Simulated scan of single mutants.
Amino acid sequence: MPQPLRRWPDDLAWTANAGALRPKLAPWIVRVSAEWAKVQIHLGLVLAATLDAEAHAGVHMYLALTGSAAQEAALSAAVNTQLPEAYQSAFVDILRKYRACARQRNRIVHCLWGVSLKYPNGLINCPPENIILGAISKSAPRDDVLEKCMVYTEKDFFELCDAIQALGIDAYSFVIKASLFHHPTQFSSESERLQVLQTFFPATKPVHQNARNSRLKGSGS
């Protein structure tokens, strides 16, 4: 997990050019965004598979909703009315993971990024509202801004991407299960279901394993 910025470096600079100054870390921000988009696609497919014959109208209404809370409520209502209790429990777990990942993803996407020579392998993250509160604070402004600043390393980005991708796999697995509930003969075997998953995630394990091995090698472990 990212670590809090405990002291304000004298050379700390908030800049839109922070990614260019940390070229090894910048691509991870793009990947977080891309992995999150996949999750949103799969949640939409959850609704389509759950509603089955009524999917066309239901999905259009779902996409017209603004805000994740409204979309979550629509998804939960569909699952709770169209699928058995065991499916409902599984979906509650998916939503729990979704909310946890969403908080971390939002922090990365909706923020200011800064750099300092004291953190040559890190990007410093701060919510913009914290800068505003610091500007109007009666105490030392830097102390108020510092409160929510976090330092992200490559390991932190990797772990978040890993969690988001795992969430996407869980969501798409649920799509298959919901489809099978309505159409039990859709897949002839468990292996056929896995093949479908692999078309959406063709290199999940090798990519992650290579990244882990590379990180461990670099740390001398």
Rank of each mutant, 00 (worst) to 15 (best):
C126L: 13
T153Y: 04
V39S: 09
H182I: 03
C126D: 00
I94N: 09
Q195F: 13
L167Y: 02
A102I: 03
A13P: 01
S89G: 11
A78S: 14
Q104T: 09
M1W: 06
A26Y: 04
A34T: 12
P27G: 05
L180F: 01
T185S: 12
D10Q: 07
S188P: 01
P128E: 03
L112E: 09
L5E: 00
R107E: 11
R22M: 04
M1E: 10
I108Y: 01
A49P: 12
A163I: 03
T81N: 11
A102H: 13
A49L: 07
R22P: 08
S139A: 13
L12S: 00
L47Q: 05
F158Q: 08
E85A: 15
S173W: 00
K38A: 14
G218R: 12
W28A: 08
P84T: 10
S76R: 15
L45V: 01
V109S: 13
V30C: 05
I176W: 02
R99E: 14
A90W: 00
R215F: 13
F187P: 05
L65E: 12
L47I: 09
A140L: 09
S179H: 05
F174N: 04
S33I: 09
S179V: 01
L21R: 09
P127W: 06
L95K: 10
V151I: 11
A102K: 15
C101H: 04
P141A: 06
